[in-house]
Every structure is written in structure tokens, then in C-alpha cells.
Design a protein around this nucleic acid. Structure first.
Length: 777
DNA sequence: GTAGGGTTAG
């Protein structure tokens, strides 16, 4: 009996057994039974034996539509749309006896690789009169949605003679996948009001739009709805709920759903691990991963990507390397670009930029995110010049267009080194790709213009371009006024911010307090330190305390500053003591300076800047024992001075000078020019101040050291390479040395140049032998 | 003997 044979075939669990039964069918001649070829294709397909399936198909003498449908489905299910498309074409050429039917299209449509092909399929459906079938029409809708043609999908939906839940679902997910969240929700509500049966697929399709809409209430009401319908027990639904709650910021609700689940699959675990990782609980994420392993669920590449992010936030380089090794072992780093990017990001966040770079170099394919990740890695590890280099290399690679994140990463690097012309080029780029009014890009542009000395451009952007409903742009412009010494304007911007009801955050007050400090507005600073707490409920962080110490100290209230530190409810850090030490240096209070140094040498013993400051103070006061003590302490601790560097942008090229670095091609010429300048300066009364030389060397060597300071090299280079009497703008990574500060005053007078120096602290505008800077050295 | 769909990442 043939039925017995079919049943026997269906019980095959190995392709070997199936093949021997197949041979038996051929020998016995039973293979000519019309049902066998199709059954065999389907069974081989189920056992993933594509070769045998294809062979059965090609050996079928009179192929009927069942055989065609099965072989097409086989290829689609095994991810081979090209082969499926080929079979579909041969079906069309097979003659009038076999034609595609309503079973063919739902599968065959998945083989369409572009909209044009899909539209041809649609017109074929019309010619064959198959549009009445819900499966066919829903599949057409999915095809259109896949290529972004949601309106065409909607047309099919509207014109369908009858619609089942699947058709409605196709409409909901079509809108969702094309980012049309409002329409998706609209269709979903229509479904409910028209009494169409909502199933787990509807829910799993519509839940992901709650997060982009930022609509927590919608999410909760859908959740309630699923409970009423008894759909909350469905795995897909629960998984989507976890993700929805996590993305809307409620990890607790996500956890509640997770805890209530009876079955969990890989997606469940990935979602909850991702939820904790994204919400700043990397440790919990790592714990959950161990729990997942204990419950016997195998990780996939998505798990590892979340794990890499969690390790980046809280892990060690060791655990980072084991995540990396796991990904390599599974072969994911070669064929998953996201996994590669995650590793680059992880190493960069762990401070291992070399390892990040090595991973980046190894990646076979890179996208714009890969470049962004590496760029941000350099930038956030303080390697602005390297970040810039990466950006410029990226620009030379065709086919990579910068996105928001690219500009947001590269602009601070340009701000950092004071590369105005390059920054302006990015501004142009932002305009071209329509991102110049973007909140984040705009904020970075404001910051860039302010830090590159163009406060006016920053103001224009703030006033006219950038959306100002959130604190970011306000913080940037307040800080901009601050570093340029315009404290009053910074305060008035803050007043305006309050009037426009924009909520200030902790960054706002850091900017505001430091603006007060630079401008000597002691009362204002103290008032806003109170306002921050009483009116806005922001508890001062250590950064705010450092600003206050700076504010009091700079203004000469050294004892008040010290008293303020004594009453701090939190542990003062190096920023706080450093502010006090800096103030002591300015006002010549050696004892208090020594006290501050004592703390600094404990908290931050590697930072050589503090040793330099203290030594300078002793030198200025003529306390040579003190100088020697500090120097030998620094030597004992094997401290090397942070390499100081200055940069100047000439003809769109950034020239970087390191202190004492003689490798610049024009070094010889710069030295000659410097000798001439120095003679003129001395004739006008310039006397080198050797207290700024930490090295223990002879006097004439000291003069050589001072004139090899990076800022001096950069300024001289600028004088030689720019039009006479035009302004010169320099950037220095550390604070400008006091002797260079004095020297620059003379240089500005001799060369009749305006010289603008931005150092790690503020702007100095030198003009006619004076400096705008309120601090004295 | 054959058909459609949904959730997670850098």
C-alpha cells in the first residue's frame, strides 16, 4: 500500500535512511507515483540535504506545480534566494501545462532582490488572477514593505477582497519596519476596534514602536491588552515586552516580565542582558550571562556583542580578551561586522587603543560605524590628533559617508587642537548632509567655534541654528563665554535659559561656575552654587567643588578656599587640590601650596604638573631647598614631564610642535628667526624667567630650553608663514608657561600681531604688548 | 504531497 510507504518515509530521521528508501522506490518502479517526487523533496529539505532535494527535483520526469513549489520553498528556507529565483524562472518557462499558483507566490516573492523584480511578480499575480488569495496579497505587502514601498503595500491592503489577521499584521509590521510608528499604532487600534483577532504576531510587531515613540503608556496599555487576551504567555510576546520596557527605561518592569516567564529562549536572555547593559548595570548583565550559561542556553553573536559592551563598562582587559577569543573561535569576527565593531569599542573603552586598532585592521569589511568607533576611541582616550588622522583617512575611502556620530566624534577633536579651518570644513560637510541644525552636531559646532577662538560664530549658531529646548547647546555657549572671560554674558545666558524654561543640569553649573571664576565674579559664583542646590536640587559633584575652590582661590581668598575644602561633604579629588595649588602659585602662598601638594602627591602622584607648579613657587620665593626637594622627589618617582605640544593651523594644515622637538622641516629657520626676535625682545626689556625651567642645568642651557617651548616654536612658525600683521592663533595642550606668557607680550608688540593662545585652561588675547588674561604669573 | 508573518546587538 502506497500510504504505508509514505508513512515510512516520514519517519526517516537521517538522510542516509531516506536515501536508501529512495533507491528502493526507484528499483521497485514506485517512483513514478505522482506524489513521491514532491514528498522526497520536502523530506530532504527537512533534513537539510539540499543536494538530494535538487537531485530528486531534476530527476522528476513530468514536473508538476507541487514539485516546483517544493523546490522553491526548499531554497528559500535554506537562505538561497538566487537558486529559488532560478527555479521560479524555469517554472515560467516550463510551458502552459504548469503555471505558478497561489502556493507559489508567498514563497517565491521572498526571492525578489529589488523592487523592480517584486513589481514584475505583482503584475504576474494580476495576470494569473491570484490577487484574491490572502496569502498571496499579504506576501505582496511584505515584499513592498521590505523595499520601503509601504504606500504600495497599503494599496494592496486596501484593495484586498478579504483580510485575515495575517494581512493586518503585514500592514502593522510594514509600518513598523519603515519607521512609521504612528501609522502602525493607527492600524493596530483599527484592528482592535473592528474586532479582528489580534494574535501574538500582531503584538510582537507593534511593541517595538513604543520605544521610538517614547510612549511608555502605550507600551503598558498594550501589555494590559495582551494579558486580557491571554497572549502574555507567548514567548515572542514576552521577549518583545522585555525589550520594550528596557528601551523605555524601566529595567524593573523588564525584569518583572522576565521573572514571570516559564520558558526562556536565547532571545529572552539576550534581551534581559542587553537591558541591564544598556541601563548602566554591566555587572548585573554579566551575572545574568553566567546564569544563562548555567541554564544550558548557548550564546550567539548577539549575546557576545552585549557582553562586549558590558565588559567595556565594568570589566578588565583580561575578560575583554576572553570575550574576543570566544568571538574569534566561533568565526564571528570574520563575518559579523557588528561583532567586530563591538570588539573595537570594547578595547577602546578599556583604554587599549592599540588593541582596538589591531582589531579594526583585521576586519575584512568595515562600515561607517567601524570608523566612528575607532575615531571615538582615539578621541576619548585623549588622542585627538590620532582621531583626526582616522577621520581624514576615512574621508579618502569611497562610499563611506559620515553620519551624525562621526561629526560628533571628530568635532571635539578639532576643538581640542584648535583646528578652526578643519572644523569649518566639517561645518560645511554638516550643511551638505543636512546635519547642521542637528542638536548634537550643532552643540559640537558651538563648542568648536568657541574653543577655536570664534565666539561670534558660536553665538550666531546658538541664536539662529541649533534647537535650544535641551541643555546641551546652552551649556556649550555658557562655557564658550566663560573661556573667553565673559562671565557677565555667561550669567545672562543662564537667566535667559531659566526664562525659556530649559532645565539646567550639572554640566550647566560647571560651565557657569567656571565662567564666574575666569571673570572674577565671586559673588555670582557663590550665589549659583546655592541656586543649583536649592532651586534645581542638583547635589554638587566634586567638579562643582573644584570650580568653587578655583573661584575663591583665583580671587585671592585662599583661606576661604581652604576652609571651603575642609567643609566639603565628599572627598576632595586632585581637581579640588589642584585648583588650590594653582591659586597659591598665582598669589604666592608657598605654605598653603605645599599643603595642597602634599595631598596631590598622594592622590595623583604620577601627574608631574603639580611638581612643576610647586617647584616654580619655591623658586619664585627664593626657597632653593624646596626646589631641590621637589625635584628629587619627582626624579625618585621616575616622572617624565607630560610632553607639551602646541599647534597652529596654516593653510588648512595643522602643524604640531612638541617641546624641544627639532624634527619639524623648518626647525633651522625657526631657530634663526627666534634669535632675531629674542634680541629685539631683550632690547625692549624682556628678561627670561628661569624659574619655569625644572631641569637642573646651566643658565645658557635654560635659555635654550625656554625658547624651545612648543608655544614659542609655534608662534615663531606662525609669524614666518602667515601674512604680516594678521592675527595668529595657537593652541597649547598644557598651561602656557609663565615665561612664554611674558615673552608673547613682547612678541605681539614687536610684530604688531594679535596673538591668541588657547591653553588647557582659557584664552589669552595678546595685543600691543598686553594680555587680556586676568591672572598674573 | 505544497503557503505568509513576529522579538534581541555595534
Amino acid at each position: 500500500m502506497p500510504m504505508d510507504l509514505y508513512q515510512l518515509l516520514r519517519t526517516c530521521t537521517s538522510t542516509r535512511r531516506l536515501r536508501s528508501l529512495h533507491a528502493l522506490l526507484i528499483i521497485s518502479g514506485r517512483i513514478h507515483d505522482v506524489f513521491f517526487p514532491t514528498t522526497l523533496i520536502n523530506l530532504y529539505s527537512r533534513l537539510s540535504d539540499l543536494r538530494s532535494a535538487a537531485l530528486s527535483f531534476s530527476r522528476t520526469p513530468n514536473k508538476n506545480i507541487f514539485s516546483f513549489n517544493s523546490i522553491i520553498a526548499t531554497y528559500i528556507h535554506h537562505g538561497l534566494p538566487l537558486d529559488a529565483g532560478y527555479c521560479f524562472k524555469s517554472l515560467l518557462l516550463a510551458g502552459p501545462r504548469v503555471r505558478p499558483d497561489e502556493f507559489t507566490f508567498p514563497v517565491a516573492l521572498k526571492a525578489s532582490l529589488d523592487l523592480k523584480y517584486g513589481k514584475a511578480m505583482h503584475s504576474l499575480v494580476g495576470k494569473l488572477g491570484l490577487g484574491w488569495n490572502v496569502f498571496v496579497s499579504s506576501s505582496l505587502m511584505r515584499m513592498y514593505s521590505r523595499f520601503g514601498a509601504v504606500r504600495d503595500a497599503e494599496k494592496v491592503f486596501v484593495e484586498m477582497p478579504e483580510r485575515d489577521s495575517g494581512a493586518w499584521n503585514a500592514m502593522v509590521s510594514g509600518f513598523c519596519q519603515n519607521g512609521m510608528a504612528d501609522d502602525a499604532v493607527r492600524i493596530f487600534s483599527e484592528m482592535v476596534t473592528e474586532g479582528v483577532r489580534v494574535d501574538r504576531i500582531t503584538i510582537a510587531s507593534v511593541l517595538p514602536v513604543c520605544a521610538p515613540l517614547d510612549d511608555f503608556l502605550l507600551g503598558v496599555s498594550i501589555h494590559v491588552f495582551t494579558i486580557k487576551q491571554g497572549l502574555d504567555v507567548e514567548l515572542f510576546v514576552s521577549n518583545a515586552l522585555i525589550d520594550m520596557y528596557a528601551k523605555l527605561g524601566s529595567v524593573e518592569s523588564a525584569r518583572q516580565v522576565f521573572d514571570d516567564m516559564l520558558d526562556r529562549d536565547l532571545v529572552t536572555w539576550n534581551s534581559i542582558i542587553g537591558a541591564y547593559e544598556q541601563s548602566g548595570n554591566p555587572r548585573t548583565a554579566l551575572q545574568l550571562h553566567s546564569e544563562m550559561q548555567r541554564s544550558g542556553v548557548q550564546s550567539d553573536v548577539l549575546t557576545l556583542v552585549s557582553l562586549a559592551s558590558a565588559v567595556a563598562e565594568s570589566g578588565t582587559v583580561r575578560s575583554g580578551q576572553s570575550v574576543h577569543a570566544y568571538i574569534t573561535r566561533r568565526g564571528w569576527e570574520a563575518d559579523d561586522i557588528i561583532a567586530g565593531n563591538a570588539i573595537v569599542d570594547m578595547y577602546a573603552k578599556l583604554g587599549k587603543v592599540e588593541l582596538a586598532q589591531r582589531m579594526f585592521d583585521k576586519m575584512p569589511v568595515r562600515d561607517v560605524i567601524s570608523w566612528n568607533t575607532l575615531l571615538t576611541g582615539y578621541s576619548q582616550n585623549g588622542l585627538a590628533n590620532e582621531a583626526i588622522e582616522i577621520y581624514e583617512t576615512m574621508e579618502q575611502h569611497e562610499g563611506i559617508t559620515p553620519i551624525q556620530g562621526t561629526l560628533v566624534s571628530v568635532l571635539p577633536a578639532y576643538s581640542h587642537v584648535g583646528a578652526l579651518q578643519k572644523g569649518m570644513r566639517i561645518h560645511g560637510q554638516a550643511i551638505r548632509i543636512g546635519l547642521h541644525s542637528d542638536l548634537y552636531v550643532g552643540t559640537c559646532l558651538i563648542d568648536m567655534y568657541a574653543k577655536c577662538g570664534r565666539l561670534n560664530e558660536a553665538i550666531v549658531l546658538f541664536e539662529q541654528e541649533v534647537p535650544r529646548a535641551s541643555s546641551g547647546p546652552w551649556n556649550a555657549i555658557i562655557a564658550g563665554y566663560g573661556i573667553h572671560g565673559h562671565g557677565e554674558q555667561a550669567l545672562s545666558i543662564f537667566t535667559q535659559m531659566e526664562q525659556e524654561r530649559v532645565k539646567p543640569d550639572n554640566v550647566t553649573f560647571v560651565s557657569l561656575l567656571s565662567a564666574c571664576s575666569h571673570a572674577g565674579l565671586v559673588d555670582g559664583g557663590q550665589r549659583y552654587f546655592q541656586v543649583m542646590q536649592s532651586k534645581y536640587g542638583i547635589r554638587p559633584a566634586v567638579k562643582h567643588y573644584a570650580c568653587m575652590v578655583d573661584l575663591l582661590g583665583r580671587a585671592g581668598h585662599l583661606d576661604a578656599a581652604y576652609g571651603f575644602i575642609r567643609t566639603m561633604p565628599i572627598e576632595p579629588d586632585s581637581g579640588v587640590w589642584g585648583a588650590l595649588l594653582g591659586a597659591c602659585r598665582v598669589h604666592g602662598n608657598v605654605e598653603l601650596g605645599a599643603l595642597a601638594s602634599k595631598f596631590l602627591f598622594e592622590i595623583d602622584p604620577e601627574n608631574v604638573g603639580y611638581y612643576v607648579l610647586l617647584s616654580n613657587m619655591y623658586a619664585k620665593a627664593g626657597k632653593w631647598d624646596g626646589v631641590n626637594d621637589v625635584r628629587s622627589l619627582a626624579r625618585r618617582r621616575h616622572l617624565q614631564k607630560t610632553p607639551g605640544w602646541s599647534s597652529i593651523e596654516v593653510n588648512n594644515k595643522v602643524n604640531v610642535f612638541f617641546t624641544g622637538n627639532q624634527s619639524h622641516p623648518q626647525y633651522e629657520d625657526i631657530c634663526k628667526e627666534m634669535v632675531i626676535l629674542l634680541a629685539k625682545m631683550k632690547s625692549l626689556g624682556y628678561v627670561p624667567d628661569y624659574s619655569f625651567v625644572l631641569q637642573d642645568v646651566e643658565e645658557d642651557e635654560k635659555e635654550h630650553i625656554l625658547s624651545n617651548h612648543s608655544e614659542r616654536l609655534a608662534i615663531t612658525f606662525g609669524i614666518m608663514n602667515t601674512t604680516p600683521k594678521t592675527p595668529i592663533q595657537i593652541f597649547k595642550n598644557l598651561r602656557v608657561c609663565g615665561d612664554c606668557h611674558n615673552a608673547t607680550k613682547f612678541i605681539s608688540r614687536i610684530t604688531e600681531r594679535e596673538i591668541i593662545v588657547r591653553d588647557s585652561n582659557r584664552f589669552h588675547h595678546f595685543k600691543d604688548g598686553n594680555c587680556s588674561c586676568r591672572d598674573y604669573w
